[in-house]
């Protein structure tokens, strides 16, 4: 980690942090003086990451202020959906460092990553679907990652800079809930690599929307474009009597009204379906396991809207810069 000197104290805020030289942990550190005095230029990693990701056409970040609303489930199914087009290369990057769910949901738990001359090679779920997660670096299912922010940021930087994705059409990034280190790091390290946009996941009840509005404001603060809002777990149809129940009731109008109020696009609703949870636990794609369900239809429609946004985004960037992106001949 370039950001933290090897002789730094345990809770070093990182040399590039605004707190460098000023945090409580800096007291007595041999580098304190240097940190306080030196100007903090841009992290050279930002340019290195831009270079590394120049062969990734579209970058999508999946966010939510609220926990457990289905970010990882959506990330995995967005990736599965995109990868059904075999001409497309799709990657998933899991930056949830303390609670990585992606390896299990994509059915590659227990796999290891390999180091090669050109960086870390990701784990392949399919020929055209690859994954990177801290889950692959842990010794076992009981290993806890008890890390403070700077250490998490260091790993996220490595994930963005050192993973050898090859040429790719889509990179989907799954995040933990909140508006803190992981989210800031993704935004800052990808500043020059251009993120197509964020997909914001919510559930219908106010207790979730409360946190999700903060996430929308976070995106605005860090100037990350928002593709739109997805409302997950929107109602449950009893398999026996076919009546619908609102388990997480939209007491303040749900995701759709929130999106309208905050002037962002609403991408659609996904129902609560126990088979979705089951597929996640078993590492299977719900889209291929239960292809004829209303939930699969809803997924497909949402995924199409996202692809649409991405194509428009890149086209507008190309006219802006006059450059064509040279990515995968997709033959």
């Amino acid at each position: 980690m370039a950001d933290i000197p090897t002789d730094a104290p345990e809770h070093c805020p990182g040399t590039a942090s605004d707190d460098a030289g000023k945090a409580a942990a800096c007291q007595g550190c041999p580098n304190q003086n240097v940190c306080t005095v030196l100007p903090k230029g841009p992290d050279p990693a930002v340019a290195e990451i831009k270079e590394r990701l120049s062969c990734v056409k579209h970058k999508i970040v999946v966010l939510s202020g609220k926990g457990g609303v289905g970010k990882s489930t959506f990330t995995a199914h967005l990736a599965h959906g995109l990868a059904t087009d075999h001409t497309k290369q799709v990657g998933v990057l899991d930056v949830d460092i303390c609670g990585p769910s992606i390896p299990r949901i994509l059915g590659v738990e227990g796999e290891q990553v390999h180091q090669s001359g050109s960086g870390w090679s990701p784990v392949y779920v399919d020929d055209n679907l690859s994954v990177m997660s801290i889950g692959f670096l842990l010794g076992g299912p009981d290993d806890a990652v008890i890390w403070r922010g700077p250490k998490k940021n260091g790993l996220i930087k490595q994930f963005l800079r050192d993973v050898d994705w090859g040429e790719m059409d889509f990179l989907v990034i799954d995040t933990p809930p909140g508006t803190s280190d992981e989210h800031l790091s993704v935004a800052q390290y990808l500043k020059e690599s251009q993120i197509d946009g964020a997909v914001i996941i919510t559930t219908p009840q106010e207790l979730a929307l409360l946190d999700v509005r903060k996430e929308v404001n976070f995106c605005r603060k860090v100037e990350m474009p928002i593709i739109g809002v997805v409302e997950n777990m929107s109602g449950f149809v009893c398999p026996k009597c076919k009546n619908e129940s609102q388990i997480f009731p939209p007491t303040t109008g749900g995701g759709e009204k929130m999106a309208a109020d905050m002037d962002v696009k609403f991408l659609g609703k996904l129902p609560l379906d126990p088979r979705i949870g089951k597929c996640c636990d078993e590492g299977k794609s719900f889209l291929t396991e239960v292809p004829d369900s209303p939930a699969t239809q809803a997924y497909t429609q949402i995924i199409n809207k996202i692809v649409d946004h991405c194509n428009k985004f890149v086209a507008s960037k190309e006219t802006e810069t006059g450059e064509k992106m040279e990515v995968g001949s997709s033959s």
Binding site: P13, A23, N153, T179, L184, V216, N217, F218, V222
Partner: peptide, 15 residues
Amino acid sequence: DANDAIVWRGPKKTA
């Protein structure tokens, strides 16, 4: 404002 995001890194949260 209830919609304000607290965009803080670790050291600030710790404090």
